Computed example of a mutant assay.
Amino acid sequence: MSTQHTGTRNGAGAPPRPATETRPAAPRFVESVSLIAGREITMRLRSKAFLISTGILMLAVLASVVLGSLLGGQSEATKVAVVGSAASAVEGNAELEGVPVDDRAAGEQLLRDGEVDAVVAPAASDPLGVVVIGLDEPPNGVARALAVTPSVELLEPAAVDPTLAYLVAFGFGIVFFMSAITFGSTISQSVVEEKQTRVVEILLSTVSARALLTGKVIGNSVLAFGQILAIAVLALLGLMLTGQRVLLGGLGASVIWFVVFFAIGFVMLAALFAASSALVSRAEDVGSVTTPVTMLVMIPYVLIIVFNDNPTVLAIMSYIPFSAPVGMPMRVFLGTTEWWEPFVSLAILLATAAAAVFVGERMYRNSLLKTGARVKLGEALRG
């Protein structure tokens, strides 16, 4: 008796089916980091607020350089009418521009017409042999320019003008503070937003928490570093175009060190901002957990403004990782460092940044999927 085989699932008439279903391979760590970092960069570059704030910051830097050149430049020489032999007292004086006249009456007429600010005429009774004539008030500026002053020597001359040192310290401090706070807040808001909307659960089904954190840190670090580099290039270019080459020579090395220290220091701060933000699930609670990190950024800013002329405080700041990005470049500008000191400080900063990234990654990974109440620090570290 013959049997007839009907088409079954695995029968000859059915199409062949693979033994196992194939799933798309999960992206590797480097690919995941690249995708997340690119997403962070793209989102920021598409933000009008970010572009406008960056443009305003660039204009502020350029304006400060130009105004510094105008305010710090030499003022125009004061015009004075010079009578006869009094020309020898004015000749060679960079502060005065002599206008020769035939006699005292001609000089006084120019003074009344507003052509000159004073008249310098011979005077036999004066010890200097000249008299300075003003219109309605004593021409003290002209008198000071003609005054004979003794030579002055300093036992310990300052290498840098104190006012200039303060301005440079303020510049380093405000740039570091504003960039760290701006991009640190961006990272914090991004972490909490993804956690609050449960988007992070979808992301973690594809990439690891380590890749997610690394991508966020790298993406925002690239933007912050690019902004700082643009500020440095714009400032140096402005100094060159405005003819402030003396200042450029002393500021160039310190700006380069500032960029290097900032790049590493920001990675450290970015990891801490992301890790602390993962402890909460609501945007309203971000400030409470990121306050310690914010204080670590604010303290160097305050110290560099208050103690920019204190070598002891600056020396201590240059070796503390959270203040080294400001303290060490400032000491390089002042010329108070040995050649090896920036490298030692940089090594300390690198080690601290590595430790911060390690601890931050552990806190971030252990807290990311915990919603509701704030995650305690000990719990985030233990897992």
Rank of each mutant, 00 (worst) to 15 (best):
Q189I: 11
G184S: 08
V80W: 04
E193N: 14
L346K: 06
I228K: 04
G7W: 12
V168C: 05
V120G: 13
I304W: 05
F307S: 02
L349Q: 13
G38V: 00
G134S: 10
I36E: 00
A354E: 00
A37G: 01
G11V: 09
L346H: 05
G73T: 11
N366H: 13
N310G: 03
E115W: 00
S151Y: 05
I202F: 14
P139V: 03
R245Y: 12
T54M: 14
I56R: 09
G173N: 07
A355L: 15
S85C: 03
V207F: 01
R198S: 09
E95N: 07
M328L: 15
V297W: 06
D126P: 06
G173C: 07
R282D: 10
V375E: 08
A124S: 15
V267T: 09
K216T: 01
V30Y: 02
E284S: 13
G184Y: 08
V259P: 02
L234A: 15
P15M: 05
I305Y: 05
T312K: 05
V116K: 02
P18Y: 11
A373C: 00
L67M: 13
S32T: 02
R17E: 11
L334W: 04
A37N: 02
A94T: 10
A25P: 01
V260C: 04
G219H: 08
V191P: 04
V233E: 10
V306P: 00
A271D: 02
A373N: 08
V306K: 00
L212R: 03
T6C: 04
P122I: 12
L303F: 14
M268W: 12
P15T: 04
G68K: 07
G68V: 07
T371N: 03
E193A: 14
Q196F: 04
T6R: 15
E153L: 11
I218S: 08
A159G: 14
T8I: 08
T214L: 10
V168N: 05
F183R: 03
G238K: 06
L96D: 02
T54D: 03
L35G: 00
Q196Y: 04
